[in-house]
Amino acid sequence: MPSETPQAEVGPTGCPHRSGPHSAKGSLEKGSPEDKEAKEPLWIRPDAPSRCTWQLGRPASESPHHHTAPAKSPKILPDILKKIGDTPMVRINKIGKKFGLKCELLAKCEFFNAGGSVKDRISLRMIEDAERDGTLKPGDTIIEPTSGNTGIGLALAAAVRGYRCIIVMPEKMSSEKVDVLRALGAEIVRTPTNARFDSPESHVGVAWRLKNEIPNSHILDQYRNASNPLAHYDTTADEILQQCDGKLDMLVASVGTGGTITGIARKLKEKCPGCRIIGVDPEGSILAEPEELNQTEQTTYEVEGIGYDFIPTVLDRTVVDKWFKSNDEEAFTFARMLIAQEGLLCGGSAGSTVAVAVKAAQELQEGQRCVVILPDSVRNYMTKFLSDRWMLQKGFLKEEDLTEKKPWWWHLRVQELGLSAPLTVLPTITCGHTIEILREKGFDQAPVVDEAGVILGMVTLGNMLSSLLAGKVQPSDQVGKVIYKQFKQIRLTDTLGRLSHILEMDHFALVV
């Protein structure tokens, strides 16, 4: 994948999101292997301009796509893939009243899908469409860049269908997702969380590099694949309309690839034109409109599966009536509230959605109805927002919020430890010299600072030695090549209790 991002070429006709291997024109390309080798690009942008032909009021008969309808489940399912879809609609009884809503608040519980998330729908649909058009064949390999849930859905379907599955996901995604993927037989590649989507090191860039190296491999490409919004247009939206008897006044959905909100909203605009569509985008993402909503100094966020630093091709923002931004604290607070007060075992993005819903639905009156999409299960986040310690460490809970008995030293300040200034190293000294210094002084790690004293990161003896043994660096290389740029900081005025929580999850903390 090139470091400079080429513009994806656009073909003359058809839909841009065809499933299957992508040609340089962004659509299915038939021909000899030699032709494909000559024409197939190194990668295709996940934010390529959409060429979708959908228009409100256009006859369904003019759609270029294969459409399906929700099917009634048999008493005995032939395999677990038949437990994807037909998820329950559940009334939220307490939270709406707590925040003064007059309307009825309903939750579409997508964590009841077989793999635990709304992404099971698009995973199965992308595979079925690729099999139907002859792209996927027995023994082929599926590769997908994902925040985890699409990966789980694909790995689940691949396990049943017999495909090899490789999932490329950023490091910030939970260990629970990784464990589930491994249990399903998927191979996992992790990428830096802070890598831009168009960087060769991003999950998108690495996935395309693997595709170019592995024979008979395919990126189904949830960011561009029409099967993504079509899955929701054909099934999720129809289920909502049936469950609500066609009567709903507002739908609120958090947005990642945009397939969920695009597919549902398009069908609702056709069948229930008075329904307002509300999009939820986390602070630090750029999906919301108008652009002024996205202006923030924050560039990272903890909530998973929603928000991006690019506009995915499948996201149709014209069908969203209003956007709201959400933050991590309210997302996790509301997710825990949904679990504790409503018994809905949902993930953090569901918290984002409901946090926005109780604001947006203030305009609705008694007798009206708001539906929220709860995308995934708490299963993926047992060591994250479900953990009091994690919430404390991230600053989303305060010590006084917890009532468990603490040891005698818990409320003492870090400054009472009488710490001395640490050994520091410059980023320009060599790895070999740094190892000598650390061994001589008896230290395992040291902060790396520039000549102005600005902290650049941390270097550890173990990481340097393993990097040297693996051949990633040489003793003569500058130590700046092996620094940890993500590390926890703590102030002298913070409590030892807070430091204790940090050290339970990290090997060190830097006192500043």
Rank of each mutant, 00 (worst) to 15 (best):
I80G: 07
S175K: 08
T260I: 08
G115P: 08
I166L: 10
I152S: 01
D249S: 07
G26P: 06
S3Y: 10
E213W: 04
T260V: 05
L220I: 02
L124Q: 12
P59V: 04
S123E: 08
R266G: 04
L106D: 05
L251S: 03
D120S: 07
E187T: 12
V255W: 03
K211Y: 06
L124H: 11
I166D: 04
P46V: 03
H65K: 07
H67P: 04
H22F: 14
C109D: 03
V189T: 07
I122E: 01
Q243T: 14
R45K: 06
A195R: 07
G96S: 11
N216K: 09
S3C: 11
S254M: 05
V160F: 02
E62C: 15
H232M: 00
L156T: 04
E29D: 14
I152N: 01
L28P: 09
H203A: 09
A130N: 01
N113M: 02
E239F: 00
R125C: 08
V189E: 07
V189P: 06
D238F: 09
K269G: 06
M250W: 00
V204I: 05
N113R: 01
S27W: 14
S254R: 04
A226M: 10
R45C: 03
G14F: 10
H218L: 05
P74T: 13
P70E: 10
A157I: 07
C109M: 08
D140C: 07
R209P: 02
C244G: 02
E144V: 06
L124P: 10
R182F: 07
T68F: 14
A155Y: 02
I122N: 08
Y223D: 00
K119L: 02
S202A: 08
R18N: 11
G162C: 03
L268Q: 01
R58L: 15
P21L: 13
D221Q: 01
K39S: 05
E270A: 07
R18F: 08
K211H: 06
I240P: 02
K25P: 11
W54K: 06
L156N: 01
A253W: 02
K137E: 09
V252F: 11
Q222S: 01
T260P: 02
G115N: 08
V180K: 02
A38G: 13
I166G: 03
C109P: 08
D245L: 03
C275A: 11
N228R: 01
A253R: 04
N225Y: 00
G256I: 00
I152T: 04
I219W: 00
V252S: 09
P16V: 03
T236E: 01
I167V: 04
K271S: 15
T236S: 09
K172E: 07
G116I: 12
M126Q: 05
C272H: 12
C109I: 04
I167N: 08
T236P: 04
P78M: 03
P215W: 08
G26M: 07
H67D: 03
V178C: 09
E239W: 00
L251Y: 06
K25V: 07
D198M: 06
A159F: 08
E62P: 14
G20N: 10
E128D: 08
V204D: 05
L220E: 01
Q55I: 11
A69K: 10
G256Y: 00
I143W: 01
E40M: 06
S254Y: 02
T13A: 14
V178M: 10
P88M: 04
Y223C: 06
A237K: 02
L56I: 11
K269M: 08
K75S: 15
E239H: 01
E9V: 12
H232V: 00
R266F: 05
G246W: 01
G153Q: 01
R276W: 12
C109F: 06
M169S: 01
S199Q: 08
A157M: 08
Q7P: 10
V90Q: 03
T193K: 10
C244E: 01
D79W: 06
A159T: 15
A24V: 15
P59D: 05
C165H: 01
S147H: 01
M173T: 08
I44Q: 15
P78W: 06
D35G: 14
A231R: 07
S32G: 06
